[in-house]
């Protein structure tokens, strides 16, 4: 008795690759994450040549090629400079599970910064979001913060609509 199936049936194996690793985030990220965890402060670094405040903070301005000059507090308020609402579910590789949809996703320019960061929005209705809209960071409560960017849960609209 043969167990061999017809040759035209595909042999398709399924498996999960699960890599665990440690990542030393470096001096600039360490200082940023400390301030975020301990004081719910967001910081960037200023380039002494072009005077731009860069978030994430970094040791060198990529365009001026000079070491940044100083640390600067930015946010927690800011404006949306680009946005979408993601309606496609896919697996978050950092957890192995699908992020629930829909969710708002945006470029946020924090007050005092000249660059933008990607982050999530509390709002997931597309027609309630616009470029130029003011938003503010929503932090996890202090005991839950662990010094990662996820200490900012998301950004929510400023003003009356955001009152609870």
């Amino acid at each position: 008795m043969s167990t061999t199936p017809p040759i035209d049936s595909a042999l398709r194996l399924e498996y999960v690759a699960d890599f665990e690793y440690s990542y030393a985030a470096g001096k600039f990220a360490s200082r940023f994450m400390d301030a975020l965890r301990n004081e719910a402060r967001i910081q960037g670094t200023r380039c002494g040549v072009c005077d731009k405040v860069l978030v994430p903070p970094r040791p060198v301005c990529g365009l001026c090629l000079e070491r940044t000059a100083e640390w600067v507090d930015v946010g927690p308020g800011g404006v949306i400079t680009g946005y979408t609402v993601v309606e496609v579910p896919f697996i978050d590789p950092m957890t192995g599970i699908k992020r629930p949809i829909p969710y708002g996703f945006a470029f946020v320019r924090l007050d005092g910064a000249d660059t933008n960061i990607y982050h999530f929005l509390e709002e997931s209705r597309h027609d309630k979001i616009s470029i130029g809209m003011r938003i503010t960071a929503v932090f996890k409560p202090a005991p839950e913060r662990d010094g990662t960017l996820a200490d900012i849960i998301h950004f929510r609209a400023e003003g009356p609509a955001a009152d609870e």
């Binding site: 985030a25 470096g26 950092m94 996703f105 990607y118």
Partner: peptide
């Protein structure tokens, strides 16, 4: 891993934001 990975939304989220701008 520190700055962008936890706040990315695949290629599609990136394209959506870029297209809006």
């Amino acid at each position: 891993p520190a700055w962008e990975r936890s706040v990315m939304a695949g290629a599609i989220g990136n394209f959506g934001v870029m297209a809006s701008t």
